[in-house]
Design a protein around this nucleic acid. Structure first.
Length: 275
DNA sequence: CACGAGACCTGTTCGC
DNA sequence: TGCGAACAGGTCTCGT
């Protein structure tokens, strides 16, 4: 499900609280429940529960598509993969059918990791680099420059779309925002990264930043039955708009397959060769 | 090194 | 209406 803007939105909700829901900052973890064993990547369930008990949440932040809870002795990390969601609910609520893991706090609330498809994963580690160590740069980090991006693109000989989806190349992009960014930059997803010009690379980075910031401003996108509250789906340029007119040139959007992911392009705006 | 196929999972939607 | 196929916002591993 979630890409950077959705994960950012969820992270903010947990950190700041919303409406009737409390922020998790400062809360003490009294206990944990593991409802689906494979959701917990590391460590073993017994060790996880004994380690996490009694620790307070100092800070909550996002890195790529990971949600990270800084505790006193450890870092608790969650990746939502395709269908995961993370929310706070009262202990009086009956656990929903797809809850996979819960953290119970000292104030009558709990954190629920709900994940119908069971692809999501959680980790409890002392050093977050154990999990995050190989991630590529944060696209919205100002210290990541156009020059850095251009050089990274030139350094590999891969098609743009699978490369942008590679979290070790750049962190946080998924199928939606990659298609949106490539369309905004007028680049074909099959273009080889080492063929890109400096100007095209600069345009691609600014396009990536623009679509991510639009997504964050709209609280992410809500598609299918996995809903979280954002409305960026109403502003897609190409994603899931097959057959509908390109917002730039009115040509019908086409759907192709790239690296076994459905990919949406405008065949006129996004040529393999520069126009 | 780069790529395709298959695996991991459940739920919804599409086509006949 | 029913039923199988296709598809879904992700990532890993394996073989070529």
């Amino acid at each position: 499900m979630p890409e950077l803007p959705e994960v950012e939105t969820i992270t903010g909700l947990l950190r700041e609280g919303r409406h009737d829901k409390p922020s998790l900052i400062g809360l003490r973890i009294e206990n944990a429940t593991i409802l689906w064993q494979r959701t917990l990547e590391i460590p073993k369930p017994e060790e996880f529960i004994s380690c996490i008990r009694g620790q307070r949440i100092k800070q909550i932040f996002r890195r790529g598509k990971f949600i990270c809870f800084q505790l006193h002795q450890h870092v608790f990390l969650v990746h939502l993969r395709m269908s995961g969601d993370l929310w706070v609910e009262p202990e009086t609520t009956l656990p929903a059918p797809h809850h996979r893991l819960m953290l119970h706090f000292n104030n009558g609330w709990r954190l629920a990791f709900n994940d119908p498809r069971k692809f999501g994963r959680a980790w409890l580690v002392t050093d977050d680099q154990t999990v995050l160590g190989k991630l590529g740069p944060e696209p919205l980090d100002g210290s990541f420059t156009e020059t850095d991006f251009f050089q990274r693109l030139r350094a590999s000989h891969r098609r743009l779309k699978p490369l942008l989806l590679d979290q070790n190349f750049i962190a946080g992009l998924g199928n939606i925002y990659t298609d949106e960014a490539l369309h905004l930059a007028r680049l074909h997803p099959l273009m080889i990264s080492s063929d890109i010009t400096e100007n095209q690379a600069a345009l691609l980075l600014s396009s990536i930043r623009q679509v991510l910031q639009e997504g964050i401003a709209r609280q992410g996108a809500s598609i299918d039955w996995v809903y979280r509250g954002g409305d960026f789906q109403n502003f897609f340029r190409v994603y899931q708009r097959t057959g509908q007119p390109c917002l730039v040139c009115s040509t019908p959007i086409e759907r192709i397959s790239v690296g076994q992911r459905s990919t949406h392009i405008c065949p006129v705006c996004q040529k393999m060769r520069a126009a």
